[in-house]
């Protein structure tokens, strides 16, 4: 990993115009602000996650970086090339993949489809064929290389899209919602594949997602975006630690009386305790501990000493939604933060 920024945005804003086509010519009514002064610096070799809920502006940013949109304000660079002024050269350096794209002709085989795209990147003839088979092998599609895409599953099509994005051996790979519409097993497989074969070496990778596990598995650093604004940037673990001042634990218990639960609630180090009935006999206790896990052994002992049973006990990490709620909530109101975890 080197320090040279490979993807860089400076105060990038995007305001879509309300009226498009005919009407837009006569009257420009400014529409929605989809990106609001986005600043990001992604270094060479980094795998960077852009996390955000639906409508946060992820795809908009990806399209600006891949020259399909021109920002209303600000400047974006790929490998030092301004994506607006130097679009053609920038495009040579990027591979892009959109989760919902229909970029293939289903009546043609993966090889034929990819041969076409290879030519658009100036790769021809034998060299193209070699490269196409190579990328198909990378994504594990060698066996079905000559099959019509009609017969591909969604997961296979997605892998074919990854193969396409890799054709020009891009310095910068941008993947927008690569896992969308995949079943959990296919998604996990794809994640493995990306980790092992795609995000390697000097390549800089930008991944957008709203699946936290995916970001954690793949990314060195992440940025949270909501409402078109970058809310926080850093390593996930750091962000989580920064947010998680109260450690949250889940303990499934049985055989406790109300009085003993109240005693637990009053124990030192317990900020809050929620009781969620499970199956009549058992409860889930959501414990909000003030410092860290130190209080946990004491809590377990207390349950057992008051005649209860501990079925399971473990930390509950903040989910992406919770982290979001905190991050986004923070930017409005600091007080929100106390109530949200759990």
């Amino acid at each position: 990993m080197s320090d040279a920024p490979v993807i860089e945005t400076r105060n990038v804003s995007m305001r879509f115009s309300e009226q498009q086509g005919w009407r837009g010519l006569f009257r420009v009514r400014p529409g929605k602000l989809a990106l609001d002064a986005v600043n990001l610096t992604i270094r060479q070799g980094e795998v960077f996650g852009l996390l955000g809920p639906n409508g946060a502006g992820k795809t908009t940013l990806v399209k600006i970086l891949s020259t399909l949109l021109i920002p209303t304000a600000g400047e974006a660079r790929i490998a030092g090339l301004n994506v607006v002024r130097d679009g053609l050269r920038a495009r040579r350096r990027i591979g892009v993949l959109y989760g919902d794209e229909r970029l293939f002709f289903w009546r043609l085989s993966a090889v034929d489809n990819l041969m076409f795209y290879a030519a658009l990147y100036g790769i021809h003839g034998k060299e193209a064929r070699r490269r196409v088979l190579e990328v198909l092998d990378m994504v594990g599609l060698s066996e079905s290389a000559h099959m019509r895409l009609h017969h591909y599953s969604t997961g296979m099509k997605r892998r074919a899209s990854i193969a396409r994005a890799l054709l020009n051996d891009p310095d910068v790979l941008i993947m927008d919602e690569v896992n969308v519409a995949l079943d959990p097993i296919a998604a996990a497989e794809l994640r493995e594949l990306i980790k092992e074969r795609v995000t390697t070496g000097e390549r800089t990778v930008l991944i957008t997602t709203n699946v936290m596990a995916e970001a954690e598995f793949l990314c060195d650093r992440v940025a949270f975006i909501a409402g078109g604004r970058i809310q926080m940037v850093g390593e996930i673990a750091h962000i989580r630690n920064a947010l998680q001042t109260n450690k949250v634990f889940e303990m499934v218990v049985g055989g406790l009386t109300n009085a003993s639960i109240e005693a637990l609630r009053a124990a030192p180090g317990v900020d809050a305790l929620d009781v969620v009935p499970l199956d009549g006999k058992r409860y889930r206790l959501d414990l909000n501990l003030s410092s860290n896990g130190d209080t946990v052994p004491m809590m377990v002992r207390r349950v057992v000493e008051t005649g209860g049973e501990v079925w399971s006990c473990g930390p509950r990490e903040l989910t992406m939604d919770q982290m979001f709620a905190i991050i986004v909530g923070n930017s409005h109101k600091d007080a929100e933060r106390e109530r949200i975890p759990a």
């Binding site: 891949s66 020259t67 399909l68 053609l88 050269r89 495009r91 040579r92 990027i94 892009v96 959109y98 794209e101 229909r102 970029l103 795209y117 658009l120 990147y121 100036g122 396409r164």
Partner: peptide, 14 residues
């Protein structure tokens, strides 16, 4: 309509 315009426009062609 096929959604193929954007994928071809991200390629470096004039």
């Amino acid at each position: 309509r096929l959604g193929m315009l954007e994928p071809t426009l991200v390629a470096p062609i004039r």
